[in-house]
Computed example of a mutant assay.
Amino acid sequence: MQTSTERDSHYNHLEQMSVAEILQHINYEDQTVAVSVSKALPQIEKLITVITARMKVGGRLFYIGAGTSGRLGVVDASECPPTFGVPFDLVVGIIAGGDGAIRKAVEFAEDDINQAWKDLSAFNITHKDVVVGIAASGTTPYVIGGLKAANQNKIATGCVVCNSGSPVAAEANYPIEVVTGPEFITGSTRMKAGTAQKLVLNMLTTTVMIQLGRVKGNKMVDMQLSNNKLVDRGTKMVMNATGLDETTAAKMLKKQGSVRKAVDFYNQNKQA
């Protein structure tokens, strides 16, 4: 049976369209993605609840995927430490074909049904962890094999797919199915399906980190101060929380190393 992401585009003769027409049609299709994601919110909530519970007892989150899906997992994982100040190995993105596949496609890497578990095993994965397979089609052997092996080892599994009733979803304890339908260019799942996956991954890690106390109010109080923009942002956050002037706030932030620590230090010494 043909998956919905592989069905023919609703549009034809794309090469005959004007630039304006192409943009209008792509934008129209993109507007349907958020609606598709909204229908999967109950599924997303269930997976977030499991990930949060596992992390509270020392577990980690692993993404496995191939191609665009794998790259999206790597991106989401890599952004957690600078955004939330968590260890680099709390959320791990694994792509079929290894890190080299992030920049250049590795032929047939996604077709190896045994490789994902080998890749996961390199991280000494345990029953405390959660494995989430990312696959637009829901048919990627690399992801299916990884989830199957994780299940056999009593590890919680989830997935993010863009078709209903897929083999990947069948292997996941907590499947997330965001049905995005045909792409503007037939089969080009880097478009709507990729956008949907990115939205879901944003939801997963952002909500988990909030649940773990990595956000205060609406601020990234544990963010890494890795560039001048973030130092300026952190300084303003300290100023707003303490009433200190900019120079004093900046010095305190630099000395304490994070917004949270700077504000806590101020409050402790103020009370003293």
Results as ranks from 00 to 15, higher is better:
L230A: 07
K154S: 06
Q197K: 09
K216P: 00
T205P: 00
Q211A: 08
A149M: 07
A196I: 14
L201I: 12
A150L: 12
Y174Q: 04
T242E: 11
I185K: 14
Q224M: 15
I155A: 07
G194T: 13
M223V: 15
M209T: 12
V161M: 10
I210K: 07
Q224A: 14
T186S: 05
P175Y: 08
K216H: 12
V160A: 01
T189A: 03
R190M: 14
N173Y: 04
V161D: 04
V179H: 14
T186D: 01
N228F: 08
K216S: 03
S166N: 04
N218F: 09
T205M: 02
G234Q: 00
C159H: 00
S164D: 06
V178H: 10
R214Y: 09
Y174D: 04
V178N: 04
V200D: 10
C159G: 06
P167K: 00
M191C: 00
K192H: 04
R214Q: 07
T207R: 02
T189E: 09
L212R: 06
E183I: 02
S164T: 09
G181T: 13
N151F: 05
G243W: 00
Q211C: 10
V178Q: 09
V231H: 08
N240L: 05
R214L: 08
M223K: 13
C162Y: 03
V200A: 09
S166P: 15
A169W: 03
Y174C: 11
V200Y: 14
T205F: 02
T206S: 13
